[in-house]
Protein backbone atom coordinates (compact mmCIF):
# COMPACT_ATOMS: atom_id res chain seq x y z
CA UNK A 1 0.00 0.00 0.00
CA UNK A 2 2.69 2.44 0.99
CA UNK A 3 4.60 1.41 -2.06
CA UNK A 4 1.66 2.17 -4.27
CA UNK A 5 1.14 5.44 -2.46
CA UNK A 6 4.72 6.53 -2.90
CA UNK A 7 4.68 5.50 -6.53
CA UNK A 8 1.59 7.58 -7.12
CA UNK A 9 3.16 10.54 -5.43
CA UNK A 10 6.23 10.07 -7.55
CA UNK A 11 4.18 9.90 -10.70
CA UNK A 12 2.20 13.00 -9.79
CA UNK A 13 5.42 14.83 -9.02
CA UNK A 14 6.91 13.72 -12.30
CA UNK A 15 3.81 14.72 -14.23
CA UNK A 16 3.80 18.18 -12.65
CA UNK A 17 7.46 18.62 -13.50
CA UNK A 18 6.85 17.69 -17.11
CA UNK A 19 3.87 20.00 -17.25
CA UNK A 20 5.65 22.96 -15.71
CA UNK A 21 8.45 22.58 -18.25
CA UNK A 22 5.82 22.89 -20.94
CA UNK A 23 3.14 25.38 -21.86
CA UNK A 24 0.23 26.39 -19.72
CA UNK A 25 -3.21 25.19 -20.84
CA UNK A 26 -1.39 23.01 -23.28
CA UNK A 27 -3.16 21.41 -26.20
CA UNK A 28 -1.35 19.28 -28.74
CA UNK A 29 -2.54 18.59 -32.26
CA UNK A 30 -0.91 17.17 -35.33
CA UNK A 31 -1.20 18.73 -38.75
CA UNK A 32 0.15 18.07 -42.20
CA UNK A 33 2.50 20.71 -43.56
CA UNK A 34 4.07 20.44 -47.02
CA UNK A 35 7.84 20.70 -47.29
CA UNK A 36 10.94 18.73 -48.23
CA UNK A 37 14.20 19.33 -46.46
CA UNK A 38 16.00 20.51 -43.30
CA UNK A 39 15.79 24.10 -44.47
CA UNK A 40 12.03 23.75 -44.56
CA UNK A 41 12.06 22.31 -41.08
CA UNK A 42 13.80 25.27 -39.53
CA UNK A 43 11.65 27.79 -41.41
CA UNK A 44 8.42 26.01 -40.47
CA UNK A 45 9.39 25.66 -36.83
CA UNK A 46 10.68 29.23 -36.59
CA UNK A 47 7.47 30.55 -38.06
CA UNK A 48 5.32 28.49 -35.72
CA UNK A 49 7.22 28.87 -32.45
CA UNK A 50 6.46 31.69 -30.08
CA UNK A 51 7.89 31.60 -26.60
CA UNK A 52 5.31 30.64 -23.94
CA UNK A 53 2.68 30.29 -26.65
CA UNK A 54 3.40 27.62 -29.18
CA UNK A 55 5.88 24.95 -30.09
CA UNK A 56 6.06 23.22 -33.46
CA UNK A 57 7.95 20.02 -34.21
CA UNK A 58 7.88 19.09 -37.90
CA UNK A 59 9.02 15.78 -39.30
CA UNK A 60 10.36 15.94 -42.82
CA UNK A 61 9.72 12.23 -43.55
CA UNK A 62 6.05 12.17 -42.55
CA UNK A 63 5.37 15.87 -43.32
CA UNK A 64 3.47 15.91 -40.06
CA UNK A 65 3.92 18.51 -37.35
CA UNK A 66 3.17 18.10 -33.66
CA UNK A 67 1.85 21.47 -32.59
CA UNK A 68 1.62 22.27 -28.89
CA UNK A 69 0.12 25.53 -27.80
CA UNK A 70 -1.39 27.44 -24.94
CA UNK A 71 -5.07 27.25 -25.85
CA UNK A 72 -5.89 30.43 -23.95
CA UNK A 73 -3.27 32.49 -25.71
CA UNK A 74 -3.46 31.27 -29.30
CA UNK A 75 -5.14 28.81 -31.66
CA UNK A 76 -4.09 26.20 -34.19
CA UNK A 77 -5.37 28.50 -36.95
CA UNK A 78 -3.07 31.32 -35.92
CA UNK A 79 -0.07 29.01 -35.90
CA UNK A 80 -0.87 27.41 -39.24
CA UNK A 81 -1.46 30.85 -40.73
CA UNK A 82 2.02 31.96 -39.71
CA UNK A 83 3.49 28.81 -41.24
CA UNK A 84 1.60 29.38 -44.49
CA UNK A 85 2.79 32.99 -44.57
CA UNK A 86 6.34 31.63 -44.34
CA UNK A 87 5.65 29.67 -47.54
CA UNK A 88 4.24 26.27 -46.48
CA UNK A 89 0.80 24.96 -47.41
CA UNK A 90 -1.25 23.12 -44.84
CA UNK A 91 -4.81 21.88 -44.40
CA UNK A 92 -6.23 25.30 -43.61
CA UNK A 93 -4.06 27.85 -45.38
CA UNK A 94 -2.26 28.10 -48.72
CA UNK A 95 0.98 30.03 -48.85
CA UNK A 96 1.11 33.32 -50.77
CA UNK A 97 2.39 32.56 -54.27
CA UNK A 98 5.15 35.15 -54.14
CA UNK A 99 6.40 33.89 -50.80
CA UNK A 100 6.40 30.31 -52.08
CA UNK A 101 8.35 31.22 -55.19
CA UNK A 102 11.03 32.75 -52.99
CA UNK A 103 11.61 29.59 -50.96
CA UNK A 104 14.95 27.85 -51.46
CA UNK A 105 14.83 25.40 -54.37
CA UNK A 106 14.77 22.30 -52.19
CA UNK A 107 11.69 23.62 -50.40
CA UNK A 108 9.59 24.13 -53.52
CA UNK A 109 7.46 21.10 -52.77
CA UNK A 110 4.97 21.77 -55.56
CA UNK A 111 7.68 22.18 -58.17
CA UNK A 112 8.07 25.64 -59.66
CA UNK A 113 4.65 27.18 -59.95
CA UNK A 114 3.65 29.96 -62.22
CA UNK A 115 2.56 32.91 -60.21
CA UNK A 116 -0.88 34.26 -60.65
CA UNK A 117 -1.59 37.61 -62.20
CA UNK A 118 1.13 39.82 -63.46
CA UNK A 119 4.21 37.78 -62.71
CA UNK A 120 7.67 38.34 -64.04
CA UNK A 121 7.21 35.47 -66.51
CA UNK A 122 4.05 36.93 -67.93
CA UNK A 123 5.76 40.22 -68.46
CA UNK A 124 8.63 38.77 -70.29
CA UNK A 125 6.28 36.99 -72.66
CA UNK A 126 4.46 40.12 -73.61
CA UNK A 127 7.69 41.99 -74.02
CA UNK A 128 9.11 39.36 -76.34
CA UNK A 129 5.91 39.46 -78.32
CA UNK A 130 6.16 43.21 -78.61
CA UNK A 131 9.65 42.89 -79.83
CA UNK A 132 8.80 40.32 -82.49
CA UNK A 133 5.87 42.42 -83.56
CA UNK A 134 7.90 45.55 -84.02
CA UNK A 135 10.63 43.63 -85.84
CA UNK A 136 8.10 42.30 -88.32
CA UNK A 137 6.78 45.75 -88.90
CA UNK A 138 10.20 47.09 -89.53
CA UNK A 139 10.97 44.47 -92.09
CA UNK A 140 7.73 45.14 -93.84
CA UNK A 141 7.82 48.88 -93.89
CA UNK A 142 11.53 49.60 -93.79
CA UNK A 143 10.67 53.04 -92.44
CA UNK A 144 11.83 52.29 -88.96
CA UNK A 145 15.40 51.41 -89.42
CA UNK A 146 16.10 52.72 -85.99
CA UNK A 147 13.63 50.54 -84.05
CA UNK A 148 16.26 48.05 -83.03
CA UNK A 149 18.44 50.89 -81.77
CA UNK A 150 15.61 52.18 -79.63
CA UNK A 151 14.69 48.70 -78.43
CA UNK A 152 18.24 48.05 -77.35
CA UNK A 153 18.32 51.42 -75.64
CA UNK A 154 15.27 50.37 -73.60
CA UNK A 155 16.97 47.11 -72.64
CA UNK A 156 19.94 49.12 -71.40
CA UNK A 157 17.65 51.50 -69.53
CA UNK A 158 15.88 48.60 -67.79
CA UNK A 159 19.23 47.20 -66.69
CA UNK A 160 20.02 50.55 -65.09
CA UNK A 161 16.60 50.67 -63.46
CA UNK A 162 17.48 47.31 -61.91
CA UNK A 163 20.92 48.66 -60.90
CA UNK A 164 22.44 45.74 -62.81
CA UNK A 165 25.85 46.90 -64.08
CA UNK A 166 26.75 43.61 -65.74
CA UNK A 167 23.62 43.43 -67.87
CA UNK A 168 23.95 47.13 -68.63
CA UNK A 169 27.44 46.60 -69.95
CA UNK A 170 26.33 43.66 -72.09
CA UNK A 171 23.33 45.47 -73.50
CA UNK A 172 25.50 48.48 -74.29
CA UNK A 173 27.66 46.19 -76.41
CA UNK A 174 24.69 45.00 -78.44
CA UNK A 175 23.42 48.56 -78.72
CA UNK A 176 26.76 49.55 -80.18
CA UNK A 177 26.49 46.75 -82.75
CA UNK A 178 23.01 47.81 -83.85
CA UNK A 179 24.19 51.40 -84.22
CA UNK A 180 26.96 50.31 -86.51
CA UNK A 181 24.40 48.31 -88.53
CA UNK A 182 22.16 51.28 -89.25
CA UNK A 183 22.09 52.01 -92.96
CA UNK A 184 22.21 55.75 -92.76
CA UNK A 185 21.55 56.34 -96.42
CA UNK A 186 18.10 54.78 -96.11
CA UNK A 187 17.02 57.22 -93.42
CA UNK A 188 14.78 60.15 -94.37
CA UNK A 189 16.77 63.35 -94.83
CA UNK A 190 15.75 65.08 -91.62
CA UNK A 191 16.46 61.98 -89.54
CA UNK A 192 19.70 61.47 -91.41
CA UNK A 193 20.88 64.96 -90.49
CA UNK A 194 20.25 64.43 -86.79
CA UNK A 195 21.75 60.95 -86.87
CA UNK A 196 24.94 62.32 -88.39
CA UNK A 197 25.14 64.92 -85.67
CA UNK A 198 24.74 62.56 -82.73
CA UNK A 199 26.47 59.44 -84.02
CA UNK A 200 29.91 60.22 -82.63
CA UNK A 201 28.82 61.13 -79.09
CA UNK A 202 26.41 58.17 -79.11
CA UNK A 203 29.20 55.74 -79.87
CA UNK A 204 31.42 57.32 -77.24
CA UNK A 205 28.84 57.16 -74.47
CA UNK A 206 27.81 53.61 -75.30
CA UNK A 207 31.45 52.60 -75.50
CA UNK A 208 32.04 53.96 -71.99
CA UNK A 209 29.01 52.12 -70.63
CA UNK A 210 30.10 48.87 -72.28
CA UNK A 211 33.62 49.25 -70.90
CA UNK A 212 32.64 49.24 -67.24
CA UNK A 213 30.39 47.37 -64.88
CA UNK A 214 30.40 50.24 -62.42
CA UNK A 215 26.79 51.36 -62.32
CA UNK A 216 27.59 54.92 -61.26
CA UNK A 217 29.92 55.53 -64.18
CA UNK A 218 27.41 53.97 -66.54
CA UNK A 219 24.73 56.33 -65.31
CA UNK A 220 26.90 59.40 -65.98
CA UNK A 221 27.16 58.45 -69.64
CA UNK A 222 23.57 57.34 -69.82
CA UNK A 223 22.45 60.92 -69.19
CA UNK A 224 24.11 62.31 -72.32
CA UNK A 225 23.27 59.16 -74.27
CA UNK A 226 19.60 59.67 -73.45
CA UNK A 227 19.67 63.27 -74.66
CA UNK A 228 21.04 62.22 -78.02
CA UNK A 229 18.67 59.28 -78.43
CA UNK A 230 15.88 61.73 -77.68
CA UNK A 231 17.01 63.99 -80.54
CA UNK A 232 16.83 61.09 -82.95
CA UNK A 233 13.60 59.69 -81.61
CA UNK A 234 11.86 63.04 -81.72
CA UNK A 235 12.64 63.58 -85.38
CA UNK A 236 12.00 59.99 -86.47
CA UNK A 237 8.59 59.68 -84.78
CA UNK A 238 8.14 56.28 -83.14
CA UNK A 239 5.13 54.07 -83.92
CA UNK A 240 4.22 53.62 -80.27
CA UNK A 241 4.31 56.57 -77.86
CA UNK A 242 7.58 57.04 -76.02
CA UNK A 243 7.80 59.06 -72.84
CA UNK A 244 10.61 61.52 -72.24
CA UNK A 245 11.09 61.65 -68.50
CA UNK A 246 13.07 63.80 -66.15
CA UNK A 247 14.39 63.50 -62.63
CA UNK A 248 15.73 66.73 -61.11
CA UNK A 249 17.75 64.89 -58.50
CA UNK A 250 19.84 62.85 -60.94
CA UNK A 251 23.45 63.77 -61.82
CA UNK A 252 24.03 65.18 -58.36
CA UNK A 253 21.12 67.57 -58.52
CA UNK A 254 21.76 68.80 -62.06
CA UNK A 255 18.88 66.69 -63.31
CA UNK A 256 18.80 64.18 -66.15
CA UNK A 257 16.41 62.71 -68.71
CA UNK A 258 15.66 59.31 -70.10
CA UNK A 259 13.21 57.67 -72.48
CA UNK A 260 10.69 55.02 -71.59
CA UNK A 261 7.95 53.03 -73.27
CA UNK A 262 5.86 53.21 -70.13
CA UNK A 263 4.30 56.32 -68.73
CA UNK A 264 4.87 55.11 -65.20
CA UNK A 265 8.17 56.42 -63.88
CA UNK A 266 10.99 53.94 -63.26
CA UNK A 267 14.10 55.92 -62.70
CA UNK A 268 17.32 54.51 -64.23
CA UNK A 269 19.56 56.89 -62.27
CA UNK A 270 18.75 55.70 -58.81
CA UNK A 271 17.24 52.28 -59.21
CA UNK A 272 15.45 51.16 -56.14
CA UNK A 273 16.55 54.11 -54.03
CA UNK A 274 14.33 56.62 -55.78
CA UNK A 275 12.56 54.42 -58.27
CA UNK A 276 9.61 56.69 -58.83
CA UNK A 277 11.47 59.99 -58.78
CA UNK A 278 10.69 61.93 -61.92
CA UNK A 279 7.98 62.90 -64.31
CA UNK A 280 7.07 62.72 -67.97
CA UNK A 281 8.05 65.98 -69.64
CA UNK A 282 7.11 65.04 -73.19
CA UNK A 283 5.20 62.30 -74.96
CA UNK A 284 6.67 61.56 -78.35
CA UNK A 285 4.34 60.00 -80.88
CA UNK A 286 3.43 60.12 -84.52
Amino acid sequence: MTLIKSTVIWLVALATMVCSAQLKNQKTLSAKIHGNCEKCESTIENAGDIKDQSDVDWNKETKMAMISFDSLKTSIDEILKRIALAGYNNDIFLAPTDTYSRLPGCCQYKGAVKARGKSAGFNMDSETLDHVYSNQKMVRQETHLLSTVFDNYFVLKDALVNSDGITASASAKSLLRTIKDVQMEKLPTDVHMVWMKVLKPLEQDIGHIAATENINRQRVHFASLSRNIYEVLKISKPEVPVYYQYCPMASDGKGANWLSKEEIVKNPYYGSVMLSCGQTVETIKQ
Binding site: K39, S42, N46
Partner: peptide
Amino acid sequence: GLKEQNGHSTHLNRDIT
Protein backbone atom coordinates in the same frame (compact mmCIF):
# COMPACT_ATOMS: atom_id res chain seq x y z
CA GLY B 1 19.11 38.02 -36.06
CA LEU B 2 17.11 35.16 -34.62
CA LYS B 3 15.11 34.56 -37.74
CA GLU B 4 17.28 33.20 -40.48
CA GLN B 5 17.36 35.30 -43.60
CA ASN B 6 17.25 33.05 -46.61
CA GLY B 7 19.20 34.36 -49.53
CA HIS B 8 16.16 34.62 -51.73
CA SER B 9 14.20 37.10 -49.71
CA THR B 10 15.68 40.06 -51.50
CA HIS B 11 13.81 39.08 -54.65
CA LEU B 12 11.95 42.20 -55.63
CA ASN B 13 8.84 42.82 -57.55
CA ARG B 14 9.12 46.19 -59.15
CA ASP B 15 6.26 45.51 -61.50
CA ILE B 16 3.56 46.00 -58.91
CA THR B 17 0.93 48.28 -60.46
